[in-house]
Design a protein around this nucleic acid. Structure first.
Length: 526
RNA sequence: GUCCCCAUCGUCUAGCCUGGUCAGGACACCGCUCUUUCAAGGCGGCAGCAGGGGUUCAAAUCCCCUUGGGGACGCCA
């Protein structure tokens, strides 16, 4: 309802990067900056191509779109850019939709949700692209080009060799109508190119401020391929126009596409949407985040036992901040507080440690039943444990005992793996501990003896017994506990030792304690 | 190579538009505390305005240059 393109960011030049002098449009062509959003409801879109999973960067883009439209009130359109038939797959589509849903993003129009602006698959919108292509051809904004790929490549290479520009030289633009006719008659395949006018193209970016390109930087780009399908820039504009998209919110790798798209809007006589280019998400090495940096698929995080609300919260903070102090927000708060004005213009590095921390924050607020579920699922699906449900209660108790040490479900392995393994493996520190003390072996045997003689084997009585034993021996409880921990878990850190003893069960405790006693004694002897 | 974007602790960032508060918070890290270890909690610490010029009484903040990083230059999206 607010007049988006006029009121936002009253002084955009402050966002830095204003190098162009305002109003100096060299070509003297007035920029049409009417905005669609002035006339109606906000409509935004997320337009993935189904050629893989939903990755962190895409998810962040989608989420900012979603957050924006939910905070403004409007429609979120999910459009599938599947014009690359060779690479698009049904599995990818499903995977992307699933990750979207997992993160809690619902769409108002798109796959499974028909609307007036459909269809929502580009592969089903070919007539529209053809129609707009002929319109541009008829109005003289576009022309046919008969150059072959080979010719183009040769010229590009030659130009490159002379350190020239890599742009199309526009030779087919100069073809006479007769030549075009005869070429067509000869059955020579052709593409349709957009005729880029001279001058300057600029826009007021919602996050970057004013951006300006000289059209001489652009060449006459292809809008329709020789096989009749539209290229990305063209399809995107036709769709955004026909779907009445008011705000284009996307990654800033699209900045260089924007002048071309604006020129297309202009030629079509359509009002421009508001553009908002989000800073990119980088890997720890400072380059664009990709699989090289490790896990980038949202589904990976789901499988590892991250919580969707934590993931969403974390994604929201990648390039957006409320006041720099508060960081934990419910989804409702995010919707309420989100605004494009507070999106920063500099790129951010994806910090897994902080994600883990944040997930831990959400994890400890969870009812234990939900933590049980998450761990069971992780064990079953990721660790291939097939008796998870027959041992369910026992596993649930382990999860309880692990408590908030577990920040992500997958950490159950490192935190409590010793419960599930038949034999303990001593890590470096445990080894040292078992081997260092003088009477360690004897201590362990005494602990074992005490546990063996317990009538009632439970956490409370175990604790009493161990502390009692320590007292009798004139030792501090810790002097018994530490070697016992090493013996039972193979590590020097673990959940509370009495809980460990309880859940491990008397038999396994006794054998592990005796094994460790043997280990301590034998190694010392040799 | 050309064009574009970006520049505050190691990382995410607040502060910049509307110059003047010890440059604030969080993750990570390091202490202390609690404690059977770890985790969590509490308390404390380390650490930053890329550099250089301007403008100004005053610059992280406004302007210019340099440097650095990133992105885009396809009949991919």
């Amino acid at each position: 309802m607010r007049p988006a393109c006029l009121s936002h960011r009253v002084s955009p030049s402050s966002r830095g990067g204003l190098h162009g002098r305002a109003g100096s449009s060299a070509g003297g062509i007035p920029q049409t900056e009417r905005c669609r959003s002035m006339s109606g409801a906000v409509r935004v879109r997320f337009a993935p191509s189904p050629t893989g999973y939903l990755h962190v960067g895409g998810a962040r883009t989608a989420f900012f779109n979603w957050l924006f439209v939910r905070s403004e009130g409007g429609s979120f359109i999910l459009r599938i850019e599947d014009t690359d038939v060779a690479r698009s797959t049904q599995e990818s589509l499903q995977a992307i939709l699933e990750s979207m849903r997992w993160l809690g993003m619902d769409w108002d129009e798109g796959p499974g949700k028909d609307g007036a602006a459909g269809p929502y698959f580009q592969s089903q919108r070919m007539e529209k692209y053809r129609e707009f292509s002929s319109r541009l051809l008829a109005s003289g904004h576009a022309y046919r080009c008969f150059c072959t790929r080979e010719e183009l490549e040769d010229r590009r290479a030659a130009s490159l060799a002379e350190k020239g520009a890599l742009k199309y030289d526009g030779r087919c633009e100069r073809l006479s109508p007769e030549e075009v006719l005869s070429l067509e008659a000869g059955g020579r395949p052709c593409v349709v190119r957009f005729r880029v006018r001279s001058g300057v193209t600029s826009w007021q970016d919602e996050v970057k401020g004013r951006i300006e390109f000289s059209n001489s930087e652009l060449d006459d780009f292809i809008i329709t391929r020789s096989n009749g399908t539209p290229t990305y820039n063209f399809a995107a504009v036709v769709d955004d126009v026909t779907m009445q998209i008011t705000h284009v919110i996307r990654g800033d790798e699209h900045i260089s596409n924007t002048p071309r798209q604006i020129l297309l809007y202009e030629a079509l006589g359509e009002a421009l949407p508001v553009f908002a280019h989000l800073p990119m998400i980088l890997g720890p090495d400072g380059t664009k985040l990709s699989k090289r940096h490790g896990a980038v698929a949202i589904s990976h995080y789901e499988r590892q036992g991250f919580l969707p609300e934590a993931m969403a919260n974390f994604l929201a903070l990648l390039g957006w901040a409320y006041d720099g102090k508060r960081e934990i927000f419910t989804r409702e708060e995010l919707v309420r507080k989100f605004s494009l004005e507070r999106v920063s213009s500099n790129p951010s590095v994806f910090d897994q440690d902080k994600l883990i921390w944040m997930n831990g924050q959400y994890m400890r607020e969870l009812p234990s039943s939900r933590r049980h579920e998450m761990v069971r699922r992780f064990l079953r699906e990721e660790e291939g444990m097939n008796d998870v449900d027959t041992r369910g209660d026992w596993i649930d108790r382990i999860v309880d005992v692990v408590g908030d040490r577990m920040k992500v479900a997958s950490q159950i392995t490192e935190l409590a793996g010793f419960f599930f393994e038949d034999r303990v493996r001593y890590d470096e520190k445990a080894r040292e501990l078992l081997l260092s003390g003088a009477g360690t072996s004897e201590l362990l045997l005494k602990v074992a003896g005490r546990l063996e003689s317990l009538k009632d084997y439970g956490a409370v009585s175990i604790e009493e017994a161990i502390r009692g034993l320590a007292g009798e021996m004139g030792l501090k409880a810790g002097e018994l506990i530490h070697p016992a921990r090493a013996a039972l878990t193979g590590k020097t850190t673990s959940p509370g030792i009495f809980d460990v003893m309880t859940l491990l069960g008397r038999e396994r405790c006794l054998s592990r304690l005796r094994d460790a006693a043997d280990f301590a004694a034998s190694e010392r002897a040799s």
